[in-house]
Every structure is written in C-alpha cells, then in structure tokens.
C-alpha cells in the first residue's frame, strides 16, 4: 500500500493530507444491484459497490465497459439522456438518489463532476467559478463571492496563474489550466463527492501531473471518484480501484492489491495488457 502513497512524501505540500486511514472512513455512496439500459442495450449489470469518503476511488477497464456510464449515474447526469434507464439502489449518505423526492439539481450540488474534455464556459475565469455558487445561492454578497472564487481557485491549484486576469475568458487558458479551472469550478459549489470522467485524457503529461497532484490534495476534503484509462494513473492517485468489464464490476478493492495481486483472472489479463 505504501507504494501507492509515494507522492505523499514529496515535500511540495503539507503533510496532514496523507494521514487519512482507509479503514476509518465512512461509506459515502452505496450502490446495490445497479442496472443501466440504453434503449435495449444492457450497459451496466448488477453493480454493487461502496465508495468511501475522503478517498480517491478509480474506475478502470477497457473502453465501453460502462465505467463512465456508472459514474454518470452517481449524480444522475444520465437523466439528460432520454433513452437511458437506471434500476437498482444508489444511496448518498444513506439516502436513495433515485427517489422521487430528489431533485437532481440539488443532488448535483452535492455530487460535482469534472469532464473528460475541459469545458470552461465562454465567460471570464471569475464568472466560470462564480457560476455554481451564484445559482446555488452560496454567497450573500459580492465580497463573499470573491472569497469563494478565490478559495476555489486556490483549491484548484490555479490561483497564482490567473489571479491577475480573472476577467480574461476561461477559454483562453491552456488545456491543463482549463481543466484545473473546471475542477475549481466544481469545487466552488462545496460538493461532498467529486466525480471525474477521465479528467486527464485531453491533457499533456505536464498538465496531467499537475491535475493528479491536485486530485491527491482534494482527497482531504472530498470523496473523489475518477474514471481513467490509464492504469498508471489509477495506481498513482487512487486508494481504491474498481475494475469494470463488459458492464460488470469484476473486482473492487485496495488499489495496491488490485495491481499486485488481482483475484479475478480478467483483472489480471487487463492489468498485464492482454485485454483492453
């Protein structure tokens, strides 16, 4: 396990972040027997998984295995797709998120999301970050909003780069900066869970390293779920890993264990590069 926390020992940030003990954590999201259908296609089959608070969980698996679909179920982003149907139980802090009483808007404020391609709005950097707090009414006045924006940008590890040009359009930043802006934007609404759908796939290695570093920092405050294609990335940033294959959750466990000693032969095949 220690191998996976190598980064913690880097002197770049404060120590307390890494001191979380996996065993002591609560379950944040619990999924039981989740089925997802796209029209007639059965995309997710019988997936049950408990995602922990203050932990980075990685979803890995070959393309089309359903990991992104499952991720999008967790904040009901699939609602925006007409033909998509979700069955089974998904609970956030013990509350069914597919309950009739749930407004997806309220849910998504608690379960934020960062997308594959950086998608800053065609607005200023400031407005990009302030958008979420504004719609959720998190700030009473301009000063408070300024504070929230600054905090979010700092947490997104991009404050120093943009603090002098908050009025510049968010689309003018580089790819890595854009993605960190999007993370800052997601963080600004004070979510409890942060879902990331292949957040580094459109970035170059340097930007990827910066974002990965950021993800590790975010673990202190949130439950982070990350879908990734890169097994190295999963190994670098996550504490827990779930391996999906053909819509099934094949194996879920400690990242170190999945990568060093997988139980299921399919997991082993994937990790050693035979399927994927």
């Amino acid at each position: 396990m220690d191998a996976n926390f190598a980064k913690e020992n880097e002197p770049m940030y404060d120590a307390p972040l890494g001191k979380n003990d996996v065993d002591a954590k609560d379950t944040k999201i619990a999924a039981k027997d989740v089925q997802v259908y796209y029209g007639d296609t059965h995309a997710i089959k019988d997936v049950s998984v408990d995602l922990l608070d203050k932990t980075v969980t990685a979803f890995i698996g070959p393309s089309g295995c359903g990991k992104s679909t499952f991720l999008r179920c967790l904040n009901r982003m699939n609602d925006t797709i007409d033909i998509c149907r979700v069955e089974g139980l998904i609970e956030l802090d013990g509350e069914d998120i597919y309950d009739k009483r749930v407004d997806p808007v309220q849910l998504r404020a608690k379960v934020g999301m960062v997308f594959q391609k950086p998608n800053p709005f065609p607005k200023s950097i400031y407005d990009n970050v302030a958008y979420g707090p504004k719609i959720h009414g998190l700030a009473k006045n301009k000063a408070e909003l300024d504070e929230i924006v600054e905090k979010a940008l700092r947490r997104g590890a991009i404050w120093d780069e943009v603090k002098d040009r908050l009025d510049a359009p968010g689309t003018g930043l580089s790819g890595g900066q854009q993605q960190r802006l999007c993370i800052a934007r997601a963080v600004a609404t004070e979510p409890e869970v942060l879902l990331m759908d292949e957040p580094c796939s459109a970035l170059d290695p340097i930007a990827t390293a910066q974002v990965e570093e950021l993800i590790d920092e975010l673990r202190a405050s949130y439950s982070v779920v990350i879908v990734t294609h890169s097994m190295q990335q999963a190994a670098r940033v996550s504490q827990k890993t779930a391996f999906f294959h053909l819509g099934n959750l094949v194996e879920y466990g400690e990242t170190s264990q999945i990568f060093t000693n997988p139980v299921d032969p399919r997991t082993e095949s994937y990790i050693t590069g035979r399927i994927g």
Binding site: N75, M77, F115, N119, I135
Partner: peptide, 12 residues
C-alpha cells in the same frame, strides 16, 4: 460539453 458542465454543477 457546455450543457454537461452546467448540469454537472447542479444548474437547472
């Protein structure tokens, strides 16, 4: 992606 970004933040 613009729409997704906004819905993902919990916008109506």
């Amino acid at each position: 992606a613009m729409r997704d970004g906004s819905y993902g933040l919990g916008a109506t």
